[in-house]
């Protein structure tokens, strides 16, 4: 860890950023968990709560950016300090996006409410959400401890989420082919699954940012990818599912 600054107010400013990011992380996690719970149990009240919470993250991101800009202007940060502040700006943006995705999932609760969700699909979505949330939680823990090793490990695990997303995608296609009346709710669920899968990507982005903040270099190599949905077609989905 770095020793404290000679100007102690500088340390306070950096601590403020760290604290606000952690708070944003907690809110984003809660929103995502609630949105998936609202979806699988078609709980409109909970969905409404998630939708209304999005402004908290928007406001937090705005405040973090403002503080970061002022700190850059006043302190002319360099080296690890500069990376710390740039990292805070980036991570705040990622978490704000995670909140948006939770909100979008919550909004779709109203569209699928009447049709209901088949149990098997709900379980698939829950599992996907569990993995995405675990990744988000771990990456926020890594933000607190600044372990470059752990940040790298998280980044290398995104393919689990991709694989489950691909299998959900296939399942939803199957449901749609079985009965055209499933198309509307299943399309919404497809977006929800995509939302959750994107959360895993944002967690991975955050992991990369933490790696950069800690080491000063970008993590090497491509991220592992197991999202094959871009090349899936209905017939293929049937035969390979």
């Amino acid at each position: 860890m770095n020793s404290p600054h000679i100007a102690s107010a500088y340390d306070e400013e950096l601590k403020y950023l760290t604290r606000r990011i952690s708070e944003m992380g907690g809110t984003a996690e809660q929103m995502v968990a609630d949105s998936v719970r609202a979806l699988v149990s078609t709980d409109a009240a909970l969905a409404q709560k998630v939708i209304s919470e999005d402004v908290i993250l928007d406001e937090a991101e705005r405040q973090i950016n403002e503080k970061a800009i002022v700190t850059i202007a006043r302190r002319q940060p360099v080296a690890a300090d500069l990376r710390e502040i740039m990292g805070a700006i980036r991570i705040a943006a990622e978490l704000e996006r995670v909140g948006d995705l939770g909100k979008n999932t919550a909004k779709r609760v109203f569209a699928v409410q009447s049709a209901g969700i088949p149990r098997a699909l709900a379980r698939g979505l829950e599992h996907l959400a569990e993995l995405a949330l675990m990744q988000l939680k771990e990456v926020l823990d890594v933000y607190a401890t600044r372990s470059a090793e752990k940040a790298k490990a998280i980044r290398e695990r995104d393919d689990e989420i991709d694989a489950i997303y691909t299998s959900l995608f296939r399942e939803l296609l199957t449901y749609m082919m079985e009965d055209p009346r499933n198309i509307t709710p299943c399309t919404h669920l497809l977006f929800c699954a995509k939302n959750i899968e994107r959360i895993g990507d944002h967690a991975t982005n955050i992991a990369e940012t933490i790696y950069y903040m800690t080491t000063g270099s970008q993590p090497e190599g491509d991220r592992p990818k197991d999202d094959n949905t871009t090349s899936l077609v209905a017939g293929v989905a049937d035969s390979t599912a």
Binding site: N2, Y10, V78, A80
Partner: peptide, 10 residues
């Protein structure tokens, strides 16, 4: 170097 340029106690 890090401590000096960042204005930290070395």
């Amino acid at each position: 170097t890090q401590d000096y340029i960042m204005g930290r106690f070395g």
